[in-house]
Amino acid sequence: MSQFDVTGTRARSGWHDWLMTETPRSRRQARIGSFYQGWLTLRRNPMAMFGLSILVFLVLLAIFAPLLAPKDPYAQDLGARLLPLGSEGYPLGSDSLGRDILSRLIYGARITLYIVALVALIAPIVGLFVGTVAGYAGGWVDTILMRITDIFLAFPRLVLALAFVAALGAGIENAIIAISLTAWPPYARIARAETLTIRKADYIAAVRLQGAGPLRIITKHIWPLCISSLIVRVTLDMAGIILAAAGLGFLGLGAQPPSPEWGAMISEGRRFILDHWWVATMPGLAIFIVSLAFNLLGDGMRDVLDPKDAGK
């Protein structure tokens, strides 16, 4: 790549050279550089970029919700109940308590992101921990940990999440815990598979000869190499997480009213579906668009980070 810069076919900034260099001067530069090259590949995938822009929009929406929402998402106005789409001051109509659906959707983006972010942190970390320990330790530790993983995989996820919520009680935090508890096993499997291929590598033997203990080897030398396959899986899983959270919310087991969680909003609007269809339809569209965006981005990320599966 760097010879292009020398011939000067295109004027490049110093930043670009620094990022694309084949002789990075520090580990950090190499890392950022490879990240940048991945980004360049991802940028060529229009569907992935479409998904990414929806998600960026969603994040901005969530951050600036107080500025963007036209009304207070909790403010009831019984005089303005069930207004149709395009009503004055209620672009997406109002719900049965006269609350502005658009404002509730905007605030709901915060809840959705909160759930997704936490599950996407907890589940892979648990899985990474279990998987790398099992893979590195081997023997009976491996057998026990992987058997436990299999048991969790054997449960249908939603039903297990339901049972956990039943035990923990309804609520958004418990929904997050329940979804995480059902989501970690695939990560453990991936992390274990990666560990098994890395474990016997020469550089691990070298580190061990230098006196590094298992903890240091796992955290400093195995974890970094597992990250990229976990990230792909997380991105592909996010849509499922959103759908699971919305499902729990819909059943009344996740976020509780009057919280503007999208699944709970569908549940509230369900009673009016035949006469006032927009109340339940709008939050459903929001869920659909966001999970579609995650799926599109996930597909693109897989092509970048995991080229061996590309095109499948």
């Binding site: 919305a246 499902g247 569908i266 035949l274 459903g284 999970s291």
Partner: peptide
């Protein structure tokens, strides 16, 4: 397939009920 993966099943059920039944 992508739409199938991304659609909340309960919402699709509601919308289906609205259109095909309602």
């Amino acid at each position: 397939a992508l739409i199938g993966y991304s659609m909340p099943i309960f919402w699709l059920g509601l919308v289906g009920l609205l259109i095909f039944y309602g």
